[in-house]
Every structure is written in C-alpha cells, then in structure tokens.
Design a protein around this nucleic acid. Structure first.
Lengths: 93, 93
DNA sequence: TTAATTTGCAACCAAAAGGTTTCATTTTTT
DNA sequence: AAAAAATGAAACCTTTTGGTTGCAAATTAA
C-alpha cells in the first residue's frame, strides 16, 4: 500500500475534501453530505488523508472532527517548483 | 479512463521520467534504460504523460524523441498555491 | 537483401483502488 | 432504560492500474 502525498491528492474526491475542511473542521457526516457517495466511502478517503498527515482528528464526544494540516503539501510544491521555469517566464527575470 | 495531471504525476515512475526528459529529449529505449522494468511498461507511462500534454513526440527516422512540455504543471501549482498559507508563514507578510 | 534496431500495441495477469452493504460500538438524547 | 446518532471496520465486488510476454511494422545497418 503506497501512501504518499502525490497519490493522496490524485483523487478528485480527496481534493474536494481538502477544500471543504481547509478552513473549518468537519465531521464525517458533514463532509459526506457534500457528496453523492456513502459515508463509508468518504471515511476511507479521509483515512488515506490522515495516513498522509494531511488531516488530523480531534474527538469531541461521539463526534470526530477532521482538521486539515496542509503543511505536507509543501512536498508537492517543492517538486513542481523544480519545473516552474517551464511555464513561468517571469521566473527567469 | 480519467486522465488528469494529478493522476499523471501520482506515479513515482512517471515523475522520474519527467525528471529524465525535462532538459533533454530521449527516446523510449534511453528512458527505459534507467529503470528495471520493461520498455513496454515505460512506453505505457509515457503514453499517459502524452495524453496529459506533459510530453510531446518528435519523430526522427525510426526513433521517436520524447520532449517534456511541463507548462501543464501550472495546474498543480495553482491548486497547491491555494493552500500555501498553511505551511509558508512568509506568505502572510 | 538480409539482419538488426526501434517502436506500438494486443493479450493477458495480479494487485490496488474505489465503491457498496452490513454490523458492532460508543455516546447522546428522550 | 431505550432509542437515536455517529463512527469504524469487515466483507465483498467491479474497475483501474501497472506490469508482463509476444508479435508485427517500419527504418537503418551490414
């Protein structure tokens, strides 16, 4: 089971989830309410994101709030940055 | 068959291929020589990259040179940029 | 012209990905 | 105490992914 950040953000549903919780913590049902798939499917996507460290969980009673920890995205930013010269002309000036 | 840039760069072999041809065009055999998998496997990876527009092909005789066209990576850069505030403190200043 | 090189692609296969339904557990509400 | 709500996870299924071998076609070299 490969579990790296590039694979984590490859799935469009997971990118949407990141967008949803980036600025406010949400629980599974709240996240799942935005999609036409089951809560379990969302749960599995969130699990992958937590395994990458992109999400942390804080429990409050019977609920678990998903909080985005997007620092890990710097890995993607760094990799893409290597090739920025290829599309950003201003980079050279 | 989903074919977007996020999925294209999710595979580590494909990211390596991008690194190999970023600054010099290579043909399939030259690329495959850097990996322990078959030429056909590399061919399929390259095919995915061409379908995303990350690679274009120029034929010279019986050889086909793969040339990197990395402008498309700006899509990834843009998406990650939305969340840059989460790991780059200097972004706020 | 014959042999070697370079390539694309079909056919096949195992494993991973992404979804479902179902059920047990824990916490809250009535 | 009983019912409802929220969650985690197992079991299962289908499609996709990532690899293989084998073969045919086109170009180049001997």
């Amino acid at each position: 089971m490969r579990r790296d950040i590039f694979q984590a953000i490859a799935d469009p549903t997971r990118r949407e989830i990141i967008g949803l919780i980036a600025h406010q913590s949400l629980n599974v049902n709240a996240v799942a309410g935005n999609f036409s798939m089951s809560r379990t499917a969302i749960y599995k996507h969130v699990k992958i994101l937590t395994e990458c460290g992109l999400i942390i969980i804080s429990q409050k009673g019977r609920e678990r709030y998903y909080e985005a920890k997007l620092e890990k995205l710097h890995e993607v930013s760094d990799w893409v940055g290597i090739y920025r010269e290829f599309w950003n002309a201003r980079f050279d000036t």
